[in-house]
């Protein structure tokens, strides 16, 4: 049957989990839809958007959406947060759910690459740019972690001392 038995779902648990991951506003959402009306995810037809994700969690869904990549398409534009009449901060709910997905490694390969780059180079978006830079009259390396070993070590220390380290991404 294509029916959800809501009483059998543990709504409290799902809500507590999302709050622990940074989505405390979820309890205030009244499902008015203002966020979804301006959300790029909704406009382009992703299976999830801020409002829908919130509803799923409010009704006790948790594991079901773990493989859904929609949350990873959120551009963090925060337009939802600006228009929400209940101070839910819907983008924070998207990110909170992402954290659950991330810590379960339900992420794409491109996302994995970014974490590796962040650790190895200090830059999540990395490409060899020496030629381009010199072409416009700049030194081959920018004055960032790319040309400062001590600084890179600092970034690595912060990453090594974080829950991210346990995921074996870098």
């Amino acid at each position: 049957m294509n029916v959800i038995n809501v009483t059998s779902k543990n709504r409290q648990e799902a809500i507590e989990k999302i709050i622990a991951l940074g989505g405390e506003g979820i309890v205030r959402c009244i499902q008015c839809g203002a966020c979804a009306s301006v959300c790029p995810l909704a406009r382009t037809g992703f299976t999830l958007n801020c409002k829908k994700l919130i509803r799923l969690i409010q009704t006790g869904h948790w594991e079901e959406m773990i493989e859904d990549p929609s949350t990873w398409a959120c551009v963090a534009c925060n337009r939802c947060t600006e228009v929400c009449p209940r101070d839910v901060k819907p983008s924070e709910i998207i990110f909170a759910y992402r954290r659950f997905q991330a810590m379960e490694l339900a992420i794409s390969t491109s996302a994995t690459m970014s974490q590796m780059n962040l650790y190895m180079k200090g830059h999540a978006v990395f490409s060899e740019a020496a030629q381009l830079r010199q072409k416009v009259g700049l030194p081959p390396l920018p004055p960032t972690t790319l040309s400062d070993e001590k600084a890179l070590k600092e970034v690595q220390t912060l990453l090594e001392n974080s829950p991210m380290a346990e995921l074996g991404l870098f």
Partner: peptide, 16 residues
């Protein structure tokens, strides 16, 4: 000097 990635939305903010 020594600045890193901000870090981008898809990295640390999406994990911890």
């Amino acid at each position: 000097v020594g600045a890193s990635c901000c870090p981008a939305w898809g990295t640390a903010p999406s994990f911890d």
